[in-house]
């Protein structure tokens, strides 16, 4: 029965995922209704209706400059995400294995967390000027502590009994990391990665707006200057769509694939 499974298992997973999107769509519809109510109360200038925003979005997507700007923002937030997650996770894992490293790094992370992101943007502007560098740096600084904490917790709470089992079979340190620690670590890292992915988009747009370095943030600055409120709303919707796409098309499928074993333990009917 399980021999033919891979394709069917994938189809089943896809079906369940799409089906569960109904609940998400219902939630979004409630939000849109509230938005419409707000629009009817305050009028188009303060809050354009969802329909106006969608029309503006449709117009926006047809502009070739928007595609350029979106690509730029995507590149910056992806670079920031990769650097933040990479360095944060590695540093966190090292701190988890070594008490000395943990003692040294924890205060640094606390300090980094304590500095408001807006202050980093000011510093980054001085260091990198009006380039993508300042956006990337701000994303790294904002996202790194979360991955650090996830990596640290994951390694610290690894199952030492399983580690002893692996040692009893003469498994190398690398194999023990891959087979015993890493799968456990992943469950601590995914929440951190999801948060960082969302933060990456938002912080990139913010940094772009403040440093006037193009991208969606740059577009947003222009739209604000022109008081083109439907365009502002359209840009916001575009950013939110990007965040959602990253989360549901990239991170969730990866998490589900790595967490297949977790689902196996659930009784029938509780699954999802």
């Amino acid at each position: 029965m399980r021999e033919v499974a891979p394709g069917l298992v994938f189809l089943g997973w896809l079906g369940r995922t799409i089906w569960s999107a109904w609940a998400g769509a219902a939630g979004l519809c409630c939000l849109t209704a509230a938005w419409q109510a707000g629009h009817e109360f305050y009028g188009s200038f303060i809050l354009p209706s969802p329909l106006e925003a969608l029309e503006a979005l449709a117009a926006l997507i047809r502009e070739p400059t928007f595609a350029e700007a979106a690509k730029e923002t995507a590149k910056r937030s992806a670079a920031g995400f990769v650097l933040a997650v990479g360095f944060g996770t590695i540093a966190g894992a090292i701190a988890g294995y070594s008490f000395a490293a943990m003692r040294l790094m924890r205060p640094i992370i606390t300090v980094v967390l304590g500095v408001p992101p807006i202050a980093w943007i000011v510093l980054a502007l001085v260091w990198f000027g009006s380039t993508g560098g300042s956006a990337i740096m701000t994303v790294v600084v904002a996202g790194l502590p979360i991955s650090f904490a996830g990596g640290l917790e994951g390694v610290v709470t690894r199952d030492r009994a399983l580690d002893a089992m692996a040692r009893s079979f003469g498994a190398s340190a690398w194999m023990r990391f891959r087979t015993v620690t890493a799968p456990h670590l992943v469950s601590y890292l995914f929440p951190a990665w999801t948060t960082t992915a969302g933060t990456a988009w938002k912080v990139t747009v913010m940094a772009e707006l403040l440093s006037n370095s193009g991208g969606i943030g740059g577009e947003l600055a222009t739209a604000r200057a022109l008081f083109d409120i439907p365009r502002v709303m359209a840009l916001i919707v575009a950013v939110v769509a990007c965040v959602l796409a990253t989360e549901y098309l990239l991170i969730h499928p990866l998490r589900d694939w790595l967490g297949r074993w977790r689902e196996a333990g659930l009784p029938w009917g509780v699954k999802r």
Partner: peptide
């Protein structure tokens, strides 16, 4: 071992 100590993800 006393407990099976199986890797739950395998």
């Amino acid at each position: 071992f006393q407990e099976p100590r199986l890797l739950p993800w395998m």
